[in-house]
């Protein structure tokens, strides 16, 4: 296929494209716009959805306890969100790191020492994909509270996320490790490297793209997850999704502030999407489309 030549299309085709882009980005753009809006403007019908005098007040309210200055309009600084942001970052980063290290080692062993076929692993991955977080809610709550004593702690939720993501990570990394030429590893062995050295110094650098894809998927799940975080975490260890849900169940919703919060939660996944869309699509299509 010659990809260099682009065909000429009729205008209706471009109209369709524009409509699609507007439809998929519209809600996100609206949220972004609203997060820069004063509440007066949000409730004023004469103010347009996208053209108004922007303000960063909502963000100042949300982030008041992590800012280096004291915003003038904030009478009482609610530290909930700033704290939750820290918790979310910590939990997502640690569980991503842990999943990658553990998953990488397991995937390597499965490929190189021929334990189980890829069939068994993809079966487990598929089975795992099937288990809804809602199903894990009751047992995880019971066990973590009464047996492991890990409720309310970061460690407890990190353990859950690691376990939830491991099958997928092992599965996707396997497909990358299979492509590492065995000759490279043999050469390293000749030079006297032990299996651990070979793994860290030969294999890991080659499978970086796979690691990136796996990292994005794990981070996203840990960062976005609500249900289990809600059940397991206490007041001071809560993550951002939990604080968002807590503030919308109240009678009066402060739209400007909550949109700013939502935007802050959405920013990391959006950045990842633009930085590594190719890897994301690979991860997404793996399994359904062979290739």
């Amino acid at each position: 296929m010659a990809a260099s030549t682009t065909e000429k299309q009729n205008p209706a085709f471009y109209a369709l494209l524009v409509a699609l882009v507007v439809m998929s980005v519209g809600p996100i753009a609206l949220m972004l716009a609203t997060s820069f809006k004063m509440n007066v403007d949000i409730y004023d019908e004469s103010v347009s959805a996208f053209f108004f005098t922007p303000t960063i007040r909502n963000y100042e309210t949300v982030l008041c306890n992590v800012l280096w200055y004291e915003p003038a309009h904030v009478d009482y600084c609610d530290p909930t969100f700033g704290r939750a942001l820290g918790n979310s970052l910590f939990i997502a980063i640690v569980s991503t790191g842990l999943t990658l290290v553990i998953g990488c080692m397991a995937a390597y062993a499965l490929v190189r020492f021929k334990f189980m076929g890829r069939g068994a692993v993809s079966m487990t991955t598929l089975m795992m994909r099937m288990v809804p977080p809602a199903v894990l809610l009751v047992p995880v709550f019971g066990i973590w509270t009464f047996q492991y004593g890990l409720d309310q702690s970061h460690l407890g939720i990190i353990l859950v996320y690691t376990a939830m993501n491991l099958p997928f990570v092992i599965w996707i990394l396997q497909s990358f490790i299979v492509q590492v030429p065995i000759q490279l590893e043999e050469a390293a062995r000749m030079d006297g490297a032990n299996p651990v050295q070979i793994f860290f110094m030969v294999v890991l650098p080659i499978i970086k793209p796979g690691l990136a894809a796996a990292a994005i998927f794990t981070f996203r799940i840990a960062w976005n997850e609500f249900l289990l975080a809600n059940a397991l975490l206490g007041r001071s260890t809560r993550t951002v999704p939990v604080t968002i849900v807590n503030s919308i169940t109240e009678y009066d919703i402060d739209w400007g502030v909550i949109m700013a919060t939502g935007m802050l939660l959405a920013v990391p996944p959006i950045i990842f999407t633009f930085a590594a869309s190719r890897q994301i699509i690979t991860g997404m299509t793996a399994g359904a489309v062979k290739g």
């Binding site: 609206l30 609500f226 999407t273």
Partner: peptide, 15 residues
């Protein structure tokens, strides 16, 4: 097109 899938479901609900 993949943006809507990447954003937290909580935020999608919010929007």
């Amino acid at each position: 097109f993949i943006l809507p899938m990447m954003i937290a479901p909580i935020v999608v609900g919010l929007m």
